[in-house]
């Protein structure tokens, strides 16, 4: 994790893993923590945003607390030739949070497209799965929806200090 970040960048990442400080001047506070100026912190964050090391600085809502209590990891066996066109269309659906092309593991796992679907309840999730099925049409041979029955661990990104 070194080629695009120097030690100070890394200190900034470590200092913000838990989030930004809730103070009127959060970037000045962060600068004090890592031992540089506010201007330096802001220009480093701008650079990390520009190269995509930071997706964005934002609030992440808790889907459950906002009423999206149901979710399913939906998996689809899509014709490889059609995936470049269909993958982005599934990813852009407003109820899909993550959408990836992943390898099949034959014979037990024929699915190559993964899409996390969220809804206010199971029937809403089921209806949204039907929307994806209709979008993929005959270019999808099979699909499944894996409901999560228990969260066993959730810590998010933690890099070693």
């Amino acid at each position: 994790m070194t080629h695009v970040m120097d030690e100070l960048d890394r200190s900034i990442v470590l200092a913000t893993q838990g989030g930004l400080p809730l103070v009127p001047r959060p970037y000045a506070r962060l600068a004090d923590t890592v031992g540089t100026s506010q201007e330096d912190v802001m220009s480093r964050l701008r650079r990390l945003l520009a190269i995509g090391a930071i997706r964005r600085i934002a609030a992440v809502p808790n889907h459950y607390a906002l009423g999206l209590a149901a979710n399913a990891m939906t998996v689809w066996d899509v014709d490889d030739a059609a995936l470049p066109e269909l993958g982005p269309r599934v990813g852009r659906l407003d109820f899909v949070s993550h959408c990836y092309h992943r390898p099949r593991r034959l014979p037990e796992w024929p699915f190559n497209l993964f899409a996390m679907v969220h809804g206010r309840g199971q029937s809403e999730v089921d209806a949204k799965i039907e929307v994806i099925a209709a979008l993929l049409g005959s270019r999808c041979k099979a699909h499944d929806a894996l409901l999560s029955t228990r969260i066993l661990k959730k810590t998010g990104l933690r890099i070693a200090g």
Partner: peptide, 22 residues
């Protein structure tokens, strides 16, 4: 309050570990 109440799960930079080499 939104963080303490759990309506927000995070507030700050969202890092993309892959763009950092991970």
């Amino acid at each position: 309050a939104l963080l303490a109440g759990g309506q927000l799960s995070r507030f700050g930079p969202m890092y993309n570990i892959e763009r950092m080499g991970g």
